[in-house]
Simulated assay, not measured.
Amino acid sequence: MIGRTISHYKVLAKLGEGGMGVVYRAEDTRLHRSVALKFLPEGILATEKEKARFAREAQAAARLRHPNIATIFDFDEAVDTETATKRAFIAMELVEGESLRERISRGPFPIDGTVFILMQVAKGLQSAHQRGIVHRDIKPANIIIGEDGTVKILDFGLAKLSGETKITESGKIFGSVAYMSPEQIAGEGVDERSDIWSLGVVLFEMLTGTLPFRGDHPLAMMYSIANEPPIDIAQVRPDVPETLSRLCRQCLEKEKSKRPRSMREVLDCVEEEPKREREGQIRYSRRPVLRWVLALAVAACVAVAAWLLIPRIISPLASRTEKMRLGVLEFRDLTHDSSVTGWPAMVQ
């Protein structure tokens, strides 16, 4: 495939492969831009059902315009010149960066980093849910962190449009087992609360580096998800704020009616803790500053009072001193004492 030209896209390198397709880096020779091309896996005969499912991914994602969702540019079928077979593909935005899966492999996220990623994913999913689109395969491998920090959700290949006829074959379960909701495992109908469950698993994994349910193989994992409580996040990482711990527990409720009803509720919970922390920091930082401000204000008032009052006190004294006069009158000796004879002349 590398080096071939499909339609007007020149395939340059393979980026990855998943259950629903192979992704390549390519150049759009018409618009001269880099894109990501997603094809059905080679070697798999594309039945009409598979083609319909692949087309659904493009149709669902093409409806979405949001900073946290990878943009779909094109959907088509083209003849592979070497194999003379038709290949269905999607041309989408190429996001430079690393997957959340790669980032988690290096260890748990800090709290603020977790909130930063979680809020962007929730906002992207909220936009999709408002348009009746459920992702159904939220997992770290489908979340890309761009070089500028922008988070993008990829692969709406399992998206289910509300009211659309199901194409998935009866009894066949799609999605990554560790992130599947209990209702997905049971083969029941899913809605946006299934994405909320999956996001809860991603949240747990970002904070701890581990999964909330355990299983050595897919069936054991499915049993754990359907029947066992999630691991207490506080036992794995005690410093997680209660707000995030509570949100994680709520997202992972077995009964979907007990989960947050929408991504808006998830966002409200996520925003609660950082807001409290910011307000606490502001209050804490203002206390010593306020003391200094009050002290300076008092000192300034004293200085102003002194500047205004002291001249008023001193000025009258000074003016009185300037007007003082000494009068000397004739001095007469009325004592007739001979011992003071001569004093009148000395005084005068």
Rank of each mutant, 00 (worst) to 15 (best):
L94N: 00
A62G: 07
A46F: 13
I117E: 02
V134F: 05
T47E: 15
E50V: 07
Y24E: 03
T29H: 01
N68A: 08
F54V: 01
D74N: 15
V11T: 04
R25M: 05
F73V: 04
I90F: 02
L40T: 11
T85I: 05
L45V: 08
A62C: 14
G132N: 03
T71L: 14
K49A: 15
L45F: 09
A36G: 00
H32V: 13
L15E: 08
A46H: 13
I117T: 02
V151M: 08
F109E: 10
V35R: 08
R87A: 05
I44R: 08
A60W: 00
E93T: 10
A84T: 04
K123S: 04
E98P: 02
Q130E: 14
L118P: 10
V22N: 06
A70C: 15
Q59H: 08
G149T: 03
Y24D: 11
G149I: 12
I117C: 10
F54T: 02
T150K: 03
R103Q: 12
Q120M: 02
R101V: 03
E82A: 07
I72N: 11
P140M: 03
E77D: 14
F75Y: 11
E42W: 13
E96L: 02
K139T: 04
S127I: 12
V35W: 00
P67I: 10
S34A: 12
A52F: 15
G107V: 00
A62H: 13
L12T: 07
E93V: 11
F73L: 13
G124T: 01
V22R: 00
G97T: 09
A141C: 01
I145H: 10
E27P: 07
G16C: 08
F75I: 02
K14A: 06
P67G: 00
L12M: 09
K10M: 11
A78D: 04
I104Q: 10
L15T: 01
F75Q: 06
L45C: 10
P108R: 13
F109G: 02
R87S: 09
A13F: 01
R63W: 07
R136N: 04
K139S: 06
G18C: 05
E57K: 08
P67F: 09
T114I: 10
S99W: 11
A13V: 01
E147Q: 06
E57D: 15
V95S: 12
I69Q: 08
A46R: 13
R53L: 15
G18T: 02
D76M: 00
Y9S: 06
S7M: 04
Q120E: 06
F116T: 05
V95R: 09
A55S: 15
R136M: 02
F73S: 07
A36F: 10
N142F: 09
R65C: 01
R53Y: 14
E57Y: 14
G16L: 07
N142D: 14
H129P: 04
E77K: 07
A91D: 12
Q59A: 06
